[in-house]
């Protein structure tokens, strides 16, 4: 069935307003977009790692979710979801639960790429019927913009500051989607907020409705941490995709598929220059940083193209 935004928006909302995420936060957009892919007749249990999303969407006594929700800690969202799913399997078998439930976990990049990677790997390996969604805003935003293994090279974060001697983060971004794909999960994909949300919606739908452990990596810009003009989130996402900094692709049963190929790949600086976290790269004498950033993106992009052939 072809994607129809109007139709999708007629579904009941699953993330309520009144949560306390920052104005213009990408996480809220990501969660709404993913949950919209649930069929209205299906119930869901949402698991959440500690992070911005968690501390903002369930402040006692106010939950922003229409579905059941559980948060336990930072490192263990996937394991917590594993427990919920295991309970569902046995209670369903025993006839104590009748309805169909879907299991969706949200974690930021800190809770996914870093502290939660072990439990995520475990859950993917064991094969629980769940979707793990990373809303990747490329740093520990909840604690005040500290670098994570998802923070790109040169980014100025509060624990990788751009100083007189060291120009921001020294390491490149970890390729988590590829790591998860190496678990041989039935479905893994990268997406972000593009156009009419077709890409995000279709990937979320596949992830939710593919049996087994699925993974969705959603680039979810953070205006505060990335230091861009808050209203410009759509443009930031578009540039991430058009420069191939954040390629859109999916891995379906081990087969790599590119979701979108820019007609003309934009230079990486188009993406970088809009963001305060990269401002030092544009200072006099720092051209080499942009060159190296471009070189890295090109190399990653070529590797991805080779995989997708």
């Amino acid at each position: 069935m072809a994607y129809n935004l109007k139709k999708e928006l007629e579904k009941p909302e699953r993330l309520a307003g009144g949560h306390r995420l920052c104005a213009g936060c990408g996480a809220g957009i990501a969660v709404r977009g993913v949950l919209r892919a649930l069929e209205p007749e299906d119930k869901a249990v949402i698991t959440n790692a500690t992070g911005c999303l968690e501390v903002s969407t369930f402040i006692y006594p106010h939950t922003a979710y229409y579905d059941s929700y559980i948060h336990t800690a930072f490192a263990n969202a996937a394991a917590t979801c594993s427990g919920v799913e295991a309970a569902y399997n046995v209670l369903k078998k025993k006839g104590k639960v009748k309805e169909d439930f879907k299991f969706i976990t949200f974690g930021g990049d800190g809770g996914t790429y870093d502290i939660g990677l072990q439990s995520l790997s475990g859950a993917m390996e064991r094969g629980h019927d769940m979707v793990y969604v990373c809303y990747d805003n490329e740093a520990y935003m909840n604690t005040g913009i500290q670098r994570s293994s998802s923070t790109p090279r040169f980014a100025d974060a509060t624990t990788s500051p751009a100083g007189k001697v060291i120009p921001g983060k020294q390491q490149n971004k970890k390729n988590l989607t590829e790591i998860i794909a190496a678990h041989n999960v039935p479905y893994a994909a990268q997406t972000t907020f593009i156009g009419n949300f077709k890409d995000l919606h279709e990937k979320a739908h596949k992830a939710i409705y593919t049996h087994g452990p699925c993974f969705l990596n959603v680039l979810a810009p953070c205006p505060r941490g990335w230091r861009y003009e808050t209203p410009e989130i759509a443009e930031i996402c578009r540039l991430a995709v058009e420069t191939c900094v954040w390629p859109l692709y999916e891995i379906v049963e081990g087969v790599w598929k590119l979701s979108y190929e820019p007609k003309k790949k934009l230079p990486v600086e188009e993406f970088l220059k809009k963001q305060g976290r990269f401002a030092h790269m544009f200072k006099k004498g720092n051209d080499w940083m942009i060159d190296e950033a471009q070189e890295y993106v090109d190399k990653q992009w070529d590797k991805l193209l080779a995989k997708c052939e």
Binding site: A16, G17, G18, R20, P61, H62, A64
Partner: peptide
């Protein structure tokens, strides 16, 4: 307080008027 600070209703955040932030 609810036992274990649980909430048994959907979308109670609607009670919070974040419109004030504008």
């Amino acid at each position: 307080l609810t036992t274990g600070v649980e909430i048994y209703e959907p979308a109670t955040s609607l009670l919070v008027e974040t419109g004030d932030w504008r």
